[in-house]
Amino acid sequence: MGEPDGRIVVDHLTKQFKKVRAVDDLSFTVEPGTVTGFLGPNGAGKTTTLRMLLGLVTPTGGNATIGGRRYDELENPFRTVGAALEASAFHKGRTGRNHLRVLCAAAGLPDRRADEVLEMVGMTAAANRKVRGYSLGMKQRLGLAATMLGDPHVLILDEPANGLDPEGIRWLRGFLRGLADQDRTVLVSSHLLAEVAQTADHVVIIAGGRSVRQGKVADLTGEAEQRVRVRTPDAATLVPALNGARVEPGPDGLLYVHGTDAPSVGRAALAAGVELHELTTESSDLEQIFLDLTTGREQIR
């Protein structure tokens, strides 16, 4: 089943397009037996990184290897790596089944693999229809089917959940988890931290082509910070009375107070004689953490 070692190593990878530095000195590793979420806002450089990893885009600097070898050095890449990059890379006038059979021929795999993987992704009924008539989710499934043709040890998926229905997303989660449990390497990109948090063991978060955070999902969720949501007509009096707690203004006169709790804010307001219209404790969720990490860098370039 391909390489004994399916570790993905991205080492000081850089890509400069004419005007845009899409990926900037990015390094991370993905271990076999884990699902790693690769996260970043639009234009962060996720797809470009994956394309460099797969030999489709030439890096300006650094290198990326799978099991110690560059993708274009792999003897039979489909048996080692399965990759799905975008849901539009099909000839619209070809049937899903024929798309897979073309790839089987190129990879020297038996044609029956096409039918087997279609079955795996629940696309058997649509197999002989032209891709023109597929929905976005069906194209995603076809792309996913293609990744499984060579029964690879490493899976690289670019936003595979995009366009899937809730049942499809649940299926995908179980599918990816199952692959990792078989000691395969799974790297999957997404815009949504919450989407991968349930499946992924690790995350690599990038923004503006650079790494902003890498680590275990469990560590990130542990950091979920508490804040107090306050609404008052007299912020000018309340803020100085909060003893220097960090205050972040929200929309419509809302204030978010960090590093304290609701009773303390209430007490301070009472002591200062400030009227309060709202006082709630909020626990920032994963999405908030993601935004905190990436805002300011997330301008679409």
Binding site: L54, G55, L56, Y71, D72, L74, P77, F78, A83, L85, E86, S88, A89, F90, H91, K92, H99, L103, A106, A107, A146
Partner: peptide, 18 residues
């Protein structure tokens, strides 16, 4: 040109990086 027009160059070169 079909490979670029229909973006199938991606799966094609994934199957055959050379």
């Amino acid at each position: 040109t079909n490979e670029y027009h229909h973006q199938t160059a991606t799966p094609t070169f994934l199957a055959t990086p050379r």
